[in-house]
Every structure is written in C-alpha cells, then in structure tokens.
Design a protein around this nucleic acid. Structure first.
Lengths: 93, 93
DNA sequence: CGGGCTTACGGTGTGCGTAAATATC
DNA sequence: GATATTTACGCACACCGTAAGCCCG
C-alpha cells in the first residue's frame, strides 16, 4: 500500500468521479485509474463499482476509515514536525 | 512521506541500530540510510542522533506515535480487506 | 454523438543493491 | 584493527503523462 494510493482513494471516495478526483490530486485520470487498480489488486477486490455509476463497494466502505486515519496521521506528523523542527530557534508553539 | 519510510523509521526506532533494522525490513543498510535521510529532509530535521550512539531526537519522539498509527491502520485495512473481500462467499467472520 | 473510464506506450524519477570510503570504539 | 554508518555509482521498477480505444448516456 502506497501513500499516494491512499490519497487518491480518499479523493475518489469523496468525489465519486475519476476526472474530478484526478484534478484534485493533481494527476491525470489514467494515472488515477492505474493507482486505484493497483490498490484494488493489493486488497484483493474491487473498491468501486463503475458499471452503472461510480459507487463504493463494501470493501471500500470497510477500509475507508483506516485509510482516512492514515492520511490524517500523516498530516499531523507533518504539522508536529513543523512545530518541533529546530529550524531557527524553534519557539515552542 | 512514503509508506516504506514509515516502516523503516519505526523499525529503526525499535532497534536503534541500522544493521538490524535493515535486516528486519529486508533491505540493505545503505538503502535504509537513504530512506531515513529522505524522511528527515521532508520533516525538516534530524530524526536520529548518530554522533555518540543512535538515539531518537525530539522530532523523532514527536512524530513516532503518528507514524505508528499509520502503520497500524495500514495493517488493519489489509486485515479488514481479507475479511470483506468477496473471494469465495465471504462469510462474515 | 459526446463525456468519461480504461488500455497501451514511452519517459522520468527514485528506491534498491553492491562497492568503496569514513568514522567510531 | 574491526564494526558500523555513510557516500558513490548503476540498475530496475513503477509512477505519471499523452494518445488511442471503449462504453455509457
């Protein structure tokens, strides 16, 4: 599982639209397709039902909270790093 | 921030030894060094004090819990996926 | 017949390993 | 002097973009 795959997955969950999700992620639709495909392959099942219209599968709904926490914790880590980093005299808060 | 960087960081936190951590991660010491360097670069500060002996910096201690949660949530997602995956008739538990 | 997702193909960046250099005990 | 970490170099893989194909509305 890759970090960017998590981001792309969450964006797609939110948009339910490959074009928009790709734009939001700053990549092309084909790249997003490939990333999602790779993630689906790794998790052993489809994450989105494209047939009638884009919808989350049971698998997607099951793993979404975990991937969401991954993204949030990554953000938190970055923020905390900015606070703690000894760039100049890191003045507490 | 990359997923494998998180894994390597946690392994190094746990081992406090590049050689052992690298073996645990299934990579060579130089690769681990580069990965950690990249992560330090991204977070804007050193994560380990190599000088006298390997030790976690304040920054490392600050971000460790978040990266730990990232790894755990990734594992959980994989496990949940194994349970939900429609391989055969996924019978609840 | 138009919009959107997928497949095919090629370029580029980086993660990894081996080998050599440096530092520490 | 030996062990451990870092730097140098080269390779392979995968992410990404453009172009073409396919399907649905």
């Amino acid at each position: 599982m890759q970090m960017h795959q998590v981001r792309y997955f969450l964006a797609l969950c939110d948009e339910l639209n490959f074009t928009r999700a790709a734009r939001r992620c700053g990549i092309s639709q084909p790249s997003l397709t490939q990333a999602i495909r790779a993630l689906e392959r790794e998790l052993g099942g489809a994450l989105f039902q494209r047939e009638p219209s884009i919808a989350l599968t049971r698998l997607a709904r099951a793993v979404r909270p975990y991937l969401d926490k991954i993204a949030r914790n990554a953000d938190h880590a970055r923020e905390v790093a900015r606070t703690v980093t000894p760039r100049r005299r890191a003045r507490g808060k």
